[in-house]
Design a protein around this nucleic acid. Structure first.
Lengths: 149, 149
DNA sequence: CGCAAACGATCTGCTGTCAAACAATCGCCT
DNA sequence: AGGCGATTGTTTGACAGCAGATCGTTTGCG
């Protein structure tokens, strides 16, 4: 989208000097786009990620979900509450350690996840449109290395 | 920092599949590090950026500062308030357009900025330690292109 | 067995950000 | 001239994220 004003464009200079600021601003843009896409789909970003992880690795405690998805515990509570209210997961006590829940995805949850997943590629194509597939892969690799994965 | 548990490490897989999520998590890490560094220096991140831009391009309205630095207008109000209270900037009405301010950096503000700037390189070296200088430049270039700068 | 420490889930309070509304001012248009 | 939409700075309300305390449960250790 072209900018209507031909201002000094100081931000470009700042971005080259402060990669941390540039990353934060880019992430804010991505977060807004993702949130908008998620609400269009009627499924929150966190909810989507939880369903996706449960489908991939099986039942988990909220603790593991929170740590692995980098979502705060106290936020995970509400995410799982909403998912349970919608019937996409069910929580029952882990018989081996009754302190923890075994959060499990339901059949209905799998269907919901499948529907949401089909919309992801086009969303990524839109939001990462300025980058080629190769550049996108480079970016992913660099970010992963930054976080020491 | 090594992780104490050798869990499935699902996040690494998620990061390769969802670059948007990976970017958001990395940016959150950077934001936390930057905020911690800023409070150590006693100058907020936004305040630092405003001083830096004023020093680079001269007096600006809060609107221009907000748009260029990607800070919300209603946040910029408090940032400029604090800077003015500290004596680092002064606001006077623009005589040509009395709706807007001409926010100007003071001599004291320049001194404060210079002190804060000297601490930036070491901060960047710490937070971007996993990346080489070349990779850091690649990352910056990719992020800039993503935001179409 | 009894008790202290640790852990998982939840709740509460605080902080920061953003959207929407509002007053003052400007530019435009007839 | 005058009216009306747009812009600038500000205030307010809502909401997400996070730190810390709480409650129930389990584990370890004498």
């Amino acid at each position: 989208m072209p900018s209507k004003t031909v201002r000094p464009a100081y931000f470009a200079a700042l971005a080259t000097e402060r990669p941390d600021i540039a990353m934060c601003r880019a992430a804010a843009y991505l977060a807004r786009a993702g949130e908008a896409h998620a609400t269009r789909q009627g499924l929150g970003v966190g909810q989507h990620l939880v369903l996706k992880m449960l489908d991939a690795v099986g039942p988990c405690s909220q603790q593991v979900l929170a740590e692995e998805l980098r979502i705060d515990r106290s936020v995970m509570v509400n995410v799982c509450d909403d998912l349970e209210k919608s019937g996409f997961v069910h929580r029952r006590r882990n018989p081996d350690d009754r302190r923890s829940y075994a959060v499990t995805i339901t059949g209905e949850g799998r269907e919901r996840l499948a529907g949401a997943e089909t919309a992801v590629p086009s969303f990524l194509d839109e939001t990462f449109a300025p980058l080629t597939a190769d550049e996108r892969a480079q970016l992913t690799a660099l970010v992963s290395k930054l976080m020491q994965l």
